[in-house]
């Protein structure tokens, strides 16, 4: 019984780490491929939400509910509060600078 729970836990940790890696990778590809600051901001926040999200979930599972596990949940909460604020800050700065969002047919920049 204990072994089964342990196996599931380790399995979940591996799955979460892989998912976190996947979304971080997607985010990186997006930042490289997308054409302008606004669309890059979309994908950059992916690394924060699900990339870091799954990563921290894996950490919480690894260290258990005591102490550090709880702190990693708190970390996740703060990331979820600060990430959109930062993304909005960047996008708003770009908007106020008068940068027009890329549309179909424009040059990449």
């Amino acid at each position: 019984m204990i072994d089964a729970v342990e196996t599931v836990r380790v399995g979940l940790i591996v799955v979460f780490v892989l998912l976190g890696l996947f979304f971080s990778f997607v985010s990186m590809v997006g930042v490289l491929r997308l054409p302008d600051v606004y669309s890059r901001a979309h994908t950059a926040s992916q690394a924060d939400t699900l990339g870091a999200g799954f990563g921290l979930a894996a950490v919480a599972l690894t260290v258990g509910w005591e102490g550090a596990g709880f702190k990693s949940v708190l970390l996740l909460f703060f990331i979820f509060v600060t990430n959109p604020t930062a993304a909005h800050g960047i996008a708003r700065a770009a908007f106020e600078e008068g940068i027009v969002p890329w549309t179909e047919g424009d040059e990449r920049r």
Partner: peptide, 25 residues
């Protein structure tokens, strides 16, 4: 505004009066 930004594909760029300017991918 933050929920919109957290969801990939939509990004709140400006909140002016009661209008949200949202960039969508």
């Amino acid at each position: 505004a933050n929920s919109i930004t957290l969801t990939p594909g939509t990004l709140t760029v400006r909140a002016r009066d009661s209008d949200l300017y949202v960039h969508s991918l």
